[in-house]
Design a protein around this nucleic acid. Sequence first.
DNA 1: TGAAATGTTGGGGCG
DNA 2: ACGCCCCAACATTTC
Length: 472
Amino acid sequence: MSVNVVWFRRDLRLSDNPALYSATQNHRPVIPLFILDEHTDNAGAAFKWRLGLSIENLSLDLKRYNSKLILRKGNPLNVLRELKSSFGDLSIFWNRLYDENSVKRDTEIKSYFEPQGVSVTSTEGMLLHSPWKTQTNSGSYYKVFTPFWRALSKLKVKQIVPKPTKFIQPLKWPESDDLSEWKLDKQIDRGKEYLIETVHVGEERAKISLNNFLHQRLKNYAQARDRVDLTESSTLSENLAYGEISSREIWHSAVGQKDVDFDKKEIFIRQLAWRDFAWYLSYYSPHILRKNWKSEWDHFPWRENEDELNSWKRGLTGQPIVDAGMREMYVTGRMHNRVRMIVASYLTKHLLLDWRHGLKWFEDCLIDWDPASNAMGWQWVAGSGPDASPFFRVFNPELQSKKFDPESKYQMKYLGLSFKRTPESDKFYKMVPKSWNIGEKSRPSISIVDLKFGRDRALNSYSKFKKIIADK
DNA sequence: TGAAATGTTGGGGCG
DNA sequence: ACGCCCCAACATTTC
């Protein structure tokens, strides 16, 4: 029997899923497949926990079409070889990924199967445009966002493909793991009840979020998106991380929104382009994910201080907006983008600790963890990345709070006990494990590093660093 | 997708 | 009326 295997990866959706769509177009049985491979298994705790929900949701969606998501753990090549031997004949479909590990793995799988006459179809489903669609006039890749954006916005974003209406079932389903065997639901010990309330799982929820955003908040987005005390952002990063909605669908829906001026929409769709840019950079310079993109930053004199790092992680720095952000992330798996910049600046400038500590903690905590965006963001703040913020651009957390949390509502919500109690903060605190020990007494009342001292120390280190690299 | 230090301007108070 | 000072309110420079 000949079947079409659709290998789901970062595209856990039925709509605008080109791989799935192609596989349903030729009247052969479709086998939806998800593989927990070593890379996925090495992801952060919150991501894996949330991934479990996404897989569960996709399984249910497929069930409505009398189809079934087959779950396998292990090396993808081996899994696919095994399927090949049990079905005799199969075709493989997937949407491309652009990080180095995935590209390497996928290339190997392709070159293993194609000589055997097994067709492998890889389609574009993850980004607005694949990285090779935009390059500079000199044939190199863009390293600065603005010219990248200019080039990208000249391209036409592909129309989305519809949700398949019919899945042909195989005569016999292959073996599948039970999701509970993977223990993804056991990944985190914190505030699950709170998380369950705050996550938006699956493509149906994603579409609702999108529509709410387009009708209620898009028109204010340009001016209000930085307000950390309001929910003015789209909240779609969570869904994009698992591919529960496609970037192209968001793009088309936003651009098609009639009652909003184009320049206002543009601010929003630029954010989608930032996501493309992050993967674009990861594609052309894979080391951005783990190493200083600018190698001279290997000589930067970061401090090492385990205690201060831990204070930062647990929201015990004594700097209200920093602590609020870190606690928001630890318990909800999310953090307002503006606050991400503030806490990142505090870690890398005021505490002068290596950005990679922050990168790893975000990776462990964020349910919207995106390896490319996370790395680009951290390197942007630290100053080591392409198109990076100059190192001397130091956020003053107090000024930032005044501007973007003018009534301290955001800080109250997440600091409750040690700041000011509100019903919302009480609810939040019920979800915080006692083992955290972040009650009122344990949180310092002032920043563990004086803001002016920290800023000056960072600037001094930066000039020392510049001297070091000038002498090389 | 900064902030602080420094520079400039212009209105108002005052002798 | 004028110069002088003060000091917001911007603007520019520097880190």
